[in-house]
């Protein structure tokens, strides 16, 4: 069953195979969690969103019509839940970079080699500036940017998740990148503003 496609797993889960859905969870939970972490900027909330995403997806298995890929369907649910989470808390979340899961992941990814502490510090500052810039974007641009540039979705896949034309996704990515570059340039990074 490990080699089964997502669609096959969905079909089996529809038929009552809980293991199939469990495999689907194992296959996609990290991506969903990563997406939620980037949207909510909170590890606990991202975990909640991840669990809720799969629970809701399981409840709505019969609603999945198979026209899109299962993972885009899961992404859509996760995006909706993340946005609900963000909107529910309004602006009360102002976290420090110390517990920002994105920063933590970035630092873990770019773990400095021995003898390069200055480089590590620079990379952390870059990450903070980058995520500050992403957070400064509107909800629309940020969501689209995360889906495409961080989750690695194609424009077509992102358009299916967001329910908008592919051209709109492309426009949003262009706009988000432009604003992000301008933001970073203001902070002394880059210096080239489109």
């Amino acid at each position: 069953m490990a080699g089964a496609s997502d669609r096959e797993l969905i079909e089996r889960a529809r038929a009552g195979d809980a293991d199939a859905f469990g495999l689907l969870v194992r296959r996609h939970q990290r991506r969903i969690y990563r997406l939620a972490a980037h949207l909510t900027r909170s590890a606990p909330e991202a975990e909640d969103v991840t669990q809720e995403t799969f629970v809701r997806a399981y409840q709505a298995l019969d609603r999945f019509d198979g026209r899109s890929e299962p993972f885009t369907w899961l992404y859509r649910i996760a995006v909706n839940l993340s946005l609900n989470q963000i909107r529910a808390r309004k602006s009360k979340l102002r976290r420090s970079t110390a517990d920002d899961p994105r920063i933590l992941a970035f630092v873990a990814e770019t773990r400095p080699t021995v003898g390069d502490p200055a480089g590590a510090s620079d990379r952390r500052r870059i990450a903070e500036a980058l995520y500050d810039g992403i957070d400064s974007l509107s909800e629309t641009l940020k969501t689209t940017l995360i889906l495409v540039c961080i989750e690695g979705m194609s424009h077509d896949e992102a358009s299916k998740v967001l329910g908008c034309p592919e051209g709109t996704v492309a426009w949003r990515i262009h706009e988000a990148r432009r604003k992000l570059k301008a933001f970073l340039a203001e902070r002394g990074y880059g210096g080239e503003v489109e």
Partner: peptide, 21 residues
């Protein structure tokens, strides 16, 4: 570095997922 990050976007590459709570 930022160009590379923005291009691929990606501090979060393969296997790099924010840690659990």
């Amino acid at each position: 570095d930022l160009d590379a990050l923005l291009l691929m976007g990606l501090p979060m590459r393969e296997g790099v997922v924010p840690p659990l709570p």
